[in-house]
Amino acid sequence: MSKIREIPLSFDADLPPATPDGRHWVVYTAKRDGAPFKWAGYVDAPDQELALQFAREHYGLDEACVGIICHEHAAATDGPYGLEPLQPGNAEGEDGQDWTVFTLLKRGGNHQTAGTVKAPDADTAIDRATTRFADGKIRSIRVVPNSQVFQTTESELLIWRTHDMTYKLAKGYSKDVRAKWSQFRDEQTYEQYRKEDIARHF
């Protein structure tokens, strides 16, 4: 721990009142070009620019990631979620605004982008998305107006960093720590053998 941390933090007066929570954003990441954006987690941020900035640091570095999208949680409308997979509907139409469609492929799984539909409102968007994307396998559909889905721009695409960040990954951590423990255990074993060997011979 840095010595700087030994400096006690003090306040001359009462703390100012808490600022309101930031807006809640849902984050999705794509592992490679052309792959769907899959749910990654959430961030709190006052606006979409900072939401994407935070998402880059929080979720863009944990695994392969070539792009990030996010939308405000309140902008999403989720369709029915049942025990049985959704069956295709028959609602069709090309009027209204564009909606991004996310599908849930399995119970307990995570949403991922599937495509877009046009619709005048969220309920109609879900109906039309069900017609287009429900194939007897997916469990639920989420729609978000395209205008409220924000994506990293081309100039911001660089997400992976130059340095080795495998220590952040569970597998990297496990591998590194296992190697260190193995080394430690081997040393212990050798030390025990050495003591017994000395005792036996002398």
Partner: peptide, 22 residues
Amino acid sequence: PILEEDIAASSMAQDDLSHALV
């Protein structure tokens, strides 16, 4: 001051050290 920025700032501090190393 806030959790989200705490993580982001720490990540960028790591970047700085890593860039120095490069």
